[in-house]
């Protein structure tokens, strides 16, 4: 996560030295203010930590804030203003990039809740261990097979494994959709909800299986 690099007093305006709140502009002189530490992408765009987002609304807010922060509008400003605008616009662009994609959004939420999630790509999720083994064997078999008839058969079997994997991906998508709803219903307005950790665990599992499935599918597609 990015942090602002300004060693400034966050309680007074850098320009007029009047007291400021957590807003983006100084209430007195209306100058743009540095970002506060630990702001997350959701709150930056005015959302709660929710998993279902109205994409039109997201785009609308992204455009609105772009009009506030874009460096184009600070071309004649002071160096401080230019730097703050660059900081805010960069953060905004990253936030939009992540939030508009449901998978990235979910990963980001996990990261917010759990801190850095360890790279689990090396570990094969037990749920698809069978498929992985089977696929690996078949791929080796196919590659070393010289008889065209047998090779064809082998490739057909790989196709079959592939459609099995695609089916699994569909299931994952359906499950993810449910998790999104569950999170927003239970946790969004009640962060101490007892099902919270359970949902996060499920979410993490779903995402890591998905990542592995994607790798497998791209291996098959060569």
């Amino acid at each position: 996560m990015e942090r602002n690099s300004f060693a400034v007093d966050t309680h007074t305006c850098w320009n007029c030295h009047h007291t400021v709140d957590s807003g983006d502009k100084c209430p007195t002189c209306h100058k743009i203010l540095p970002m506060v530490e630990d702001v997350d992408y959701f709150s930056f765009l005015g959302f709660k930590k929710q998993l279902n987002l109205d994409l039109d609304e997201l785009e609308h807010r992204f455009y609105e804030l772009s009009r506030e922060y874009h460096p184009d509008y600070y071309s004649n400003g002071s160096e401080i203003e230019k730097e703050i605008s660059l900081e805010r616009a960069s953060f905004l662009n990253s936030a939009y990039q992540i939030l508009k994609d449901p998978i990235q959004r979910a990963k980001y939420l996990l990261q917010l809740e759990w801190g850095e999630v360890s790279e689990e790509k090396k570990k094969i999720p037990p749920e698809i261990l069978m498929e992985v083994m089977e696929l690996q064997e078949k791929l080796v078999e196919c590659n070393s097979e010289t008889d065209p008839e047998k090779k064809k058969k082998c490739e057909a079997e790989i196709e079959q494994i592939k459609s099995g994997l695609l089916k699994k991906m569909d299931d994952l998508n359906a499950q993810l959709k449910n998790l999104f709803i569950k999170w927003d219903e239970n946790v969004l307005n009640n962060p101490s909800n007892e099902s919270k950790q359970e949902i996060l665990k499920e979410l993490n599992k779903n995402l890591s299986i998905r990542a592995y499935l994607n790798t497998l599918l791209s291996t098959i597609n060569k």
């Binding site: 990015e2 460096p71 960069s90 953060f91 662009n93 990039q97």
Partner: peptide
Amino acid sequence: NTTIPVKAT
């Protein structure tokens, strides 16, 4: 195709 300006670490 990432919108600029952008910062990543």
